[in-house]
Nucleic acid binder design. Structure first.
Lengths: 229, 229
DNA sequence: CGCACGCTTGATGCTGCTCAATTTGTGTGG
DNA sequence: CCACACAAATTGAGCAGCATCAAGCGTGCG
């Protein structure tokens, strides 16, 4: 692998503490590819051949069943996915595709497991990564089961704003239909819910969202650190 | 801790490969308690002081928000819970209570983390446990987002039957209201859905469930190994 | 035996989905 | 730069699924 910016990969919590030699081994067998928008990366049910690292771009993790599809997560750089399947040497449970042109690092699963066995710091990082992802998924499950669509949207807006620095204003980085699916609603209802939020301190136009009245929005959203993270 | 049957605890995947000395250290600082039915064990939001092992009985893991409550999992012996919170030294995300009189082993979180750091086999077991729990939660999330209530019930019946040996007949081990919450519906709708399943090869009376026509039930359920496990 | 609780059943209303039509936005090629 | 084609987003109407509310029924336990 040759890459300008894998210093950022090395800096990931997952890799930053492991031994130089082992990190070199990891990327020795790895591929770094550029993919166009909407390229399929992973198909659920396939055996886990690679650990993926999103270096640049945007990736959607989704599940399918009986002709339906639901977005489970939208990954931002820099982060890894398919770790649990790789470690367990099992099939992928989520499919993955790019939402914009993306640079993706693919590390052979066997190499990951091999180095996991001999590098203590790497194993420790894997434990922390798995625990954190697990907790995120538990939060997502609580969100779906304990809130309605409007509340999920309101909290997503609050979280996304905070994550981007709390400017009270940000832009969507992907389709509204994808956002709708992530929030567990149809595109039509996302539209309607965004319209409803006008009465609760949120102004939205196109891909822009402005929180004009944070306290009004929070009163509706009832944010909860045990759900939203 | 004194206990007749902690051979079963030692046999858990989480503990079975660790060194004898370290296992002894773990249980040295641990408590083993009997709890009555509906005893509160864990409150979400509290800092994780203990790793719990359900030795005997039944435990419900649930989440609450804004006056609501939803069942996230029903644990059967022998198994552990709160591992992710303990490892990350963070707060619990789920509450826990017994659903019947239960014997519970409580291991101080600090001890777990300490031995995790020095016992390689234990660390490895933790990785596998976390990965598996993560995958279970992903499945649950897909189930809620991709299926309706009737389908979730149908698949739950198929899974529970298989888990109990495929006798095509089994008994509920807990409240229907808890089952309803676990499946993401109201008790009223669970009743109605059970009635609907009469037309799809399932006969139910009281706590007994009989699968009279497996293929009819499966046709409705559309079981999926990437959701049901 | 009788009370209490869990479960069932029915009636009603809300939330969110489906379908369809229009408007807006985006990317392409002349 | 504009015109066009196509995709995404909005809006409205109608409907299905599910929740809520309110009785009634059954079972188990004191």
């Amino acid at each position: 692998m040759r890459s300008p910016d894998w210093i950022t990969v090395r800096a990931l919590p997952l890799f930053c503490d492991m031994e130089e030699e082992h990190f070199d081994q990891l990327i020795d067998g790895a591929f770094c590819h550029r993919f166009p928008k909407y390229a399929n990366l992973v198909t659920e049910g396939d055996t886990a051949d690679f650990l993926y690292v999103l270096v640049d771009g945007l990736v959607e993790l989704y599940g399918t069943h009986d002709g339906q599809k639901t977005t489970l997560d939208v990954m931002q750089p820099v982060g890894s996915f398919t770790l649990a399947a790789v470690i367990r040497d099992d099939v992928y449970l989520k499919s993955a595709r790019t939402l914009m042109p993306s640079q993706i690092l693919m590390i052979p699963a066997q190499t990951v497991r091999q180095i996991y066995r001999c590098d203590h710091a790497f194993a420790d990082a894997i434990v922390n990564e798995l625990a954190e992802r697990y907790r995120c998924t538990v939060r997502a499950l609580k969100s779906v089961k304990l809130r309605n669509g409007l509340e999920r949207l309101a909290n997503w807006i609050l979280c996304t704003d905070e994550q981007q620095g709390g400017q009270r204003s940000f832009e969507l980085t992907f389709d509204k239909r994808t956002l709708a699916s992530r929030l567990g609603m149809t595109p039509e209802n996302l539209s309607r819910n965004l319209a409803v939020l006008t009465k609760h301190g949120v102004r939205s136009a196109g891909r822009g969202i402005v929180i004009e009245n944070p306290s009004a929005l929070m009163q509706l959203a009832k944010p909860n650190s045990l759900i939203d993270g």
